[in-house]
């Protein structure tokens, strides 16, 4: 159970980068981009092929992100220049990428277990510095030794990467270009009247979003130790779940707050999933169904909760009013009798 929770937090952090990408299109650009299902795998495919052919894994990871950027730009071009509806443009690109990913990989599955990945490289550096024992010793001292994972490397290193990505995104969205990008999703007509080429912002925004998604896919492949062409199925739903759960629990007051909420949402989502998978009657093949149920719950429950509260509030006021009316009537009857 403990190891499952740690695993969920680790993969949650990696998926958080993907969720930030989905946030960028879904919320900032108001563009429901389904390219994600394809570009997630594209990132992993490019990275794994490059690692297998002996190229530096760090370079391979960067290349994975860059491939996602291109894929996103193509979706943007289909939508802005080709005038294709946003949902359809994403679906077209998702389908096209399925074949392209197979072409890149050459086969449906590439194992990376015996290869040196960026994560392996970091891990050996981490072990050499004996950082695990430094982190564990105070925790062991307070009697938590049975709750400790074998290594904190992924949590710390990916955690740092996620913080950097989040901070960079926060920064960009407050620059002059970032403001124009946000306004493009908010009121495109108005941005045009202020000298902004909205098409370019849509294309760039989709590129940036899919670069993050592919970067996340590239890290997941290295984390899992294999690349699979079916890895991206339902990825957009996972991303949306993270955004919706995060915003629901942690709020969306400002950009910085929302990006933090999205990151935490991705982790919460993985933890819920891990807990569900611990149940005895749940099989590994139920994963997608559980995903759908979690997302449905995240969408429906907050609304139901607020309308239920509103109704109970209303009922309470009605009851109080009824009571005071009854009181009045009783008083009237009483005065009538004394007369």
């Amino acid at each position: 159970m403990v190891s499952a929770l740690f695993g969920a937090m680790e993969s949650g952090l990696i998926y958080a980068i993907m969720a930030l990408g989905v946030y960028l299109t879904f919320r900032i650009l108001d563009f429901p981009d389904l390219t994600v299902d394809g570009s997630f795998v594209t990132g992993g495919a490019v990275t794994s092929v490059m690692i297998v052919s002996g190229i530096s894994p760090v370079l391979a990871t960067i290349a994975g992100g860059a491939a996602g950027f291109l894929a996103g730009c193509v979706t943007g071009l289909l939508h802005t220049k080709g005038k294709i509806n946003s949902l359809l443009a994403g679906i077209l690109m998702m389908i096209a990428l399925y074949s392209i990913n197979l072409r890149i990989m050459g086969r449906p599955n590439i194992p990376l277990l015996n290869e040196t990945t960026a994560l392996n490289q970091g891990r050996s550096l981490w072990d050499a510095m004996q950082l695990d024992s430094i982190i564990s010793s105070p925790l062991k001292a307070i009697g938590l030794s049975s709750f400790l994972p074998t290594s904190f490397f992924i949590l710390v290193s990916i955690g740092i990467v996620v913080i950097i990505v989040k901070k960079a995104l926060d920064w960009f969205l407050h620059t002059d270009n970032g403001l124009a990008l946000r306004a493009t999703g908010d009121n495109a007509k108005m941005v045009k009247s202020f000298s902004a080429n909205t098409s370019n912002y849509v294309i760039f925004g989709l590129g940036l979003s899919n670069a993050l998604v592919a970067f996340s896919g590239s890290l997941i492949v290295q984390y899992n130790g294999f690349a699979d062409v079916g890895l991206g199925i339902g990825m957009i739903i996972v991303g949306l779940a993270s955004v919706i759960i995060g915003e629901g629990i942690f709020g969306k007051k400002s950009i910085a707050r929302t990006t933090l909420a999205v990151v935490l949402g991705a982790i919460v989502y993985r933890v819920i999933l891990a807990v569900a998978m611990q149940l005895e009657f749940v099989k590994a093949s139920d994963l997608k169904l559980i995903t759908a149920i979690i997302v449905t719950g995240a969408l429906v429950l907050p609304n139901m909760w607020s309308s239920w509260r509103e109704r109970s509030e209303r009922m309470k006021k009605q009851k109080a009013m009824q009571q005071s009316l009854d009181e009045e009537r009783r008083n009237e009857v009483a005065t009538a009798q004394t007369d």
Binding site: L179, R182, A183, D186, N187, K189, M190, V191, S193
Partner: peptide, 8 residues
């Protein structure tokens, strides 16, 4: 509504 970005 047209001349400003409401969520900014």
């Amino acid at each position: 509504m047209a001349g400003t970005a409401p969520n900014m």
